[in-house]
Design a binder for these strands. Structure first.
Lengths: 184, 184
DNA sequence: TATTTATGTCACAATAATGTGACATATTTC
DNA sequence: GAAATATGTCACATTATTGTGACATAAATA
């Protein structure tokens, strides 16, 4: 498997739990030496940048696929949740990273364009569902977005805990999520 | 206000976001010098330990109060959620810390006794509600516990976002939570 | 006011983390 | 098997972080 990707994967996992974790921690997780890690990523910031790119790419692809797979916004929402879960820690870390603007490179360049597009998809979806009366108008869009993100997080933790049947865990997540936002 | 407490508060907030954050970051948040911080806490581990104590104490007090305020387990659950929200970042960080056993001091001494008691209250509550048929037996206890924790997290983020009316935010949290675990 | 108490500033040593060069050893590719 | 490529090991300089002592200054208190 691609070494570079292996490093990014490990970095995403480690940094998601502890953003200031030393690079040794990441190298250790990949079973590579720190020296090798530095061969792929000259310094810490470049590694983080690579993570950001990777996360955005993965998420964008997943969300577009979810949107294009059907016209029904309800099913779109469901598949977006599954997409988030499939992206796993990537999804979590991405949103954590983007919500801490101080971490981002201070370049005014909006490299996020395609991500923004994906995000817009999301934001349009909820009001659409509200118009159709499927989600209560009472529930704030911000609130729903937070619930969504955290539901992905919960699901990942549940996977890791091993205390829950892996088969129906996604369905369970969808059940809890849609009810939490007032559906059905 | 108590300086020591001010430091612990800042530490909990900062370390919750970034566990390996340098002490300067915490000192900065308190508007104290790092030197002063070191006068109260000789080293990093002692500060973290103080945080742990503080968090356990706060949470234990809150949860006991919630339990003793009524006999109705349903209302107990609701008040426990409010208690978690009131504890704020404390609650989040406490559970994050306790779920990473490597971080804890390797002393086999169970200083957590009283906390454990508080935790047991929690764990007895859900099965009780399931017995009474108020929560579906289908939903796993682990899953509920994760949802609970994340709901506290969501609420705190919602507070911070400023996009949601502060008044009814707790009720909203309770609404989303109880529905997510299959109630009503 | 004199004295304690809390805090700040600065300098400093000790340790930890980062990033790089030089060279050895696998591993792959041709 | 030889060349190219990837990785490991070690040494090293640099920087960041940590923790402490010495002294100054501000604030509270007697």
């Amino acid at each position: 498997m691609d070494t570079r990707q292996k490093i990014v994967d490990a970095a995403i996992t480690v940094l998601n739990e502890d953003f200031s974790a030393p690079l040794d921690r990441i190298a250790e997780k990949t079973d590579l030496s720190r020296r090798t890690l530095h061969r792929y990523f000259p310094d810490r910031t470049e590694l983080i940048e690579a993570c950001r790119q990777d996360m955005m790419q993965t998420w964008q692809t997943a969300i577009l696929q979810a949107c294009n797979s059907t016209q029904d916004p309800l099913i779109q929402l469901e598949r977006m949740l599954y997409a988030g879960i499939d992206c796993g820690v990537r999804y979590i870390f991405l949103h954590k990273l983007l919500s801490q603007p101080d971490v981002n490179k201070p370049t005014g360049v909006p490299q996020n364009a395609s991500y923004e597009a994906a995000r817009d998809n999301w934001f349009q979806l909820v009001p659409e569902l509200q118009r159709r009366g499927l989600i209560s108008e009472q529930v704030n869009v911000t609130w729903i977005r937070l619930l969504f993100t955290q539901m992905v997080s919960v699901t990942i933790q549940a996977y890791q805990s091993g205390n829950i049947a892996q088969n129906d865990i996604k369905k369970l997540a969808w059940y809890s999520f849609r009810r939490s936002i007032g559906m059905e």
